[in-house]
Amino acid sequence: MTSQSVSPVATEAALRAKNVSVYYGSALAVRDVNLDIFKHEITAFIGPSGCGKSTLLRCFNRTNDLIPGARVEGKAMFHGTDLYAKDIDPVYVRRRIGMVFQKPNPFTKSIYENIAFAARINGYKGDMDELVENSLRRAALWDEVKDKLRQSGLSLSGGQQQRLCIARTIAIEPEVILMDEPCSALDPISTLQIEELMKELESRYTIVIVTHNMQQASRISDKTAFFNAEATESGNKVGYLVEYGDTEQIFNDPREQATQDYVSGRFG
């Protein structure tokens, strides 16, 4: 499925899933996913609940490692390197491939410290004040918080907290930002702000976003992957990739009937 949709333009795959299957304990959660995620593009993962899109996303920065019993088969690759190879330290993977979560999760420290922590642990050598300011500016949050950098990150509104989390992520300049439904806990205005922000960040970062919001996927993404789930005999749901391609094609001219049904709102 992947090969059909890859445009011949000389874009480089930043991330590649090769026959990736993920198990939680003995239960298969996602089976046999193959897809390439291209540099400086926004790729959206859409699909009904339980289709494994978040699970797959977490493979790409090894946050699945933190879930007891989770196991990844196949290859998740970053510029050709297997992220699950023996000599790869997951801490280093996460430093290069950042993540923004569904629920804003700022540290219970000051706004300033939220960003400074990320920089400090990764050995940042420059001017911390400057980095904090620049990160907040690039996350379109500076004007709102510049007078209260010493206040707790939790004193901000939900949308501001999420932008703080993004600021914190981009402060350490990862190459890829994985976003797991970053707007699902936010109101429409905050959502719009985050979407605009993502569009601005696209030129510097590769972004993968999991979203339940199809309008959001069609508005911001370059490529879209549609996942679906099927029930197994034991009652578990197993997710699989149905179709992957340019967002326009997925939404206007999908090859698969399931995709057509989903994007037109007939199920999901």
């Binding site: 996460r94 923004v100 990764n122």
Partner: peptide, 8 residues
């Protein structure tokens, strides 16, 4: 998770 995602 927030900490781990930043490479801590």
């Amino acid at each position: 998770q927030a900490g781990f995602a930043l490479g801590a």
